[in-house]
Amino acid sequence: MGLIIGIVALLLVVACIASVVFASKLPGVSQTDSTPTAVATKTPVGVTPTPTTGSTTQANSTPSGNPIDPQAASIIIHPQTASEVDKDTLEPKAGTVGTTFKINQPIYVTFHLDPSKYDITKEQDWVNVRFYRGSESILKDDPLQLTKQETVGYFGAKYYLSTTNGAAEIYWCHTSTCSDGKLAQVVHFTVTD
């Protein structure tokens, strides 16, 4: 009986050590949503979504060093960061737009699309987001394929390990791998304890 208890205890210790080693190898960010999301909604005629001052787009401060493409920037508009998104409208929930987030808190990068700037009948366009810690790329999300008349979307992530200055670059692509991606927008944020 003592031998069985000893073996079980040894296995538990080995499992604990393995989980600590494995956890220390995890990247500093992971997706909170299994897939990026967009919805086929139209902005009411005569109403233009207004950018919120909570998130910042800094054209001269791209973590990848890639320049912002003017055409892509005219398609993907009004980026912002929020801690919650309304799952029906895909817009940030009231009072959740900001640039400071806690470790393990969801960070949603929301954006609008201007369908007058691209051919929505082709259904051959994608949007992709890359998350950064400083200038280090730590997550490239799966591209979101656009279908007809989508005007709102978001991507989400959580930063786990430490406080950092973070950023997310939003790309406009014509291929499913986004290998041809053009940088459209950048949002900057801070992750704190």
Rank of each mutant, 00 (worst) to 15 (best):
M1V: 05
M1E: 11
L3C: 05
I5V: 05
I5P: 02
V8Y: 01
V13Y: 01
A15E: 00
C16P: 00
C16N: 02
A18Q: 01
V20Q: 01
V21P: 01
V21H: 02
K25W: 01
K25T: 05
V29S: 00
S30V: 00
D33K: 06
D33S: 08
T35A: 15
A40W: 05
T41C: 08
K42P: 06
G46Q: 04
V47E: 12
V47Q: 14
T48P: 09
P49Y: 03
T50F: 12
G54D: 08
Q58F: 05
Q58R: 15
A59E: 14
N66A: 12
A73F: 09
I75W: 06
I76L: 15
I77W: 06
H78Y: 13
H78C: 15
P79G: 12
P79Q: 12
Q80S: 14
T81H: 07
A82Y: 03
A82M: 04
S83Q: 09
S83F: 04
V85G: 11
V85E: 09
D86H: 13
T96G: 04
G98Q: 08
T99P: 01
T100A: 01
F101S: 01
K102G: 00
K102C: 00
P106G: 02
P106S: 05
I107V: 09
V109E: 05
T110V: 07
H112Q: 15
Y118H: 14
T121A: 14
Q124E: 15
V127M: 08
V127P: 07
V127S: 11
N128A: 12
V129F: 04
F131W: 13
Y132S: 02
G134E: 03
S135W: 11
S135E: 12
E136Q: 05
E136H: 00
E136V: 01
I138L: 00
I138E: 00
L139I: 06
K140D: 13
K140T: 15
K140I: 11
D141H: 10
D141I: 07
P143H: 11
P143T: 11
K148C: 04
K148R: 11
K148L: 04
E150L: 09
T151R: 14
V152H: 15
V152E: 10
G153H: 09
Y154F: 14
G156Y: 04
Y159S: 03
Y160W: 01
Y160C: 00
L161A: 00
N165P: 03
N165V: 03
N165W: 06
G166K: 09
E169V: 09
I170Q: 08
W172C: 14
C173I: 09
T175M: 11
S176L: 12
S176G: 13
S176M: 12
T177W: 10
D180Q: 08
A184P: 11
F189H: 13
T192I: 03
